[in-house]
Amino acid sequence: MTMLQTSAPAPTGTVRGPRPARRGAVIATAVGVLLVAAPLVLGAYPVSMMTRMLAFAVLVLSVDLLTGVTGMPTLGQAAYFGVGAYTAALVGVHVTSDGAVQAAAALAAGLVAAAATGWVAVRARGIVFLMLTLAIGESVHQLADTWSAVGGSNGLAGMPPISVFGAALPAAGFVYWWVLAVAALVFAAVALVARSPYGRTLRGIRDNEARMRALGYRPALARFGVYCLAGAVAGVGGALWAAQARFVSPGDLGFEVAALALLSVVIGGSGSLWGPCLGAALVLLVRDSLSAYVGGHGALVLGVVFVAVVFLMPRGLAGLARSRRKEVRS
């Protein structure tokens, strides 16, 4: 035993190549620079497309927080995304064009909506939880579709362009920067949660809930907590979506959005945070842009991609990068 100990394996990744952490930082910086520089070189359409991707990525982060980190696959996050989008639009129409106020209101609305609906859902697990969240999503969709105060099936239009810190944003590029800044902030916050003791608690619940109870945890409490957090995150995503589109309709919180968000997590690799963000960009790209080239069969393409991912790379894009890194190291 003592001999075993002295020959403890050397820390991985010290021998060859840059340490994974440092390489990760380099890549993150590069991606950050590219994202910030995008409006300077791209036209208006790609920039608005990227703005939507960022907003959608925030929704996907909230799905990943539940699905990947806590092990609760969900189809309900589009509901809180929608609640956030409608809240932001209503604030925009009736109160203020300040983007920060809209985002804060959407965050609060997403949180409250998740708290109000989630306490039932989090009692269930697995497929039952998935069905409950689906029911929540459909109910909220129905509500948006029929409630005339928010425009019913026509949606909510007439939202003025957002302003930031009192200044109106003169061009699409500025809206993009605003959305990028908020999305980055949310990403950092979710990353912090994932790395915190609370994140550890959530992973414990994902891996072995019964053992958590035996250690003295009350998993239901932690599950409810993360459900509310995810609701808040999705709410912010909704506000960002509204800031770009300046129009919200029931379609923005329908089943399709929920399914695409879950699909993004699967494609990206659940549990990793950057993977699902990449997945979000990919999914939206296929749905909104490539769809035209394949005769409007975007959904079909996504279906094929989904099946391919499940069979060829079960741990998604993030898993692909991980295994490549391992090959490089050994």
């Binding site: 912090l192 790395r195 550890r200 932690a222």
Partner: peptide, 15 residues
């Protein structure tokens, strides 16, 4: 972390 009552903290990384 459960015994030390920090299991639900998320104000800084676990390390």
């Amino acid at each position: 972390q459960r015994v030390q009552r920090v299991a639900h903290r998320f104000d800084r990384p676990a390390r």
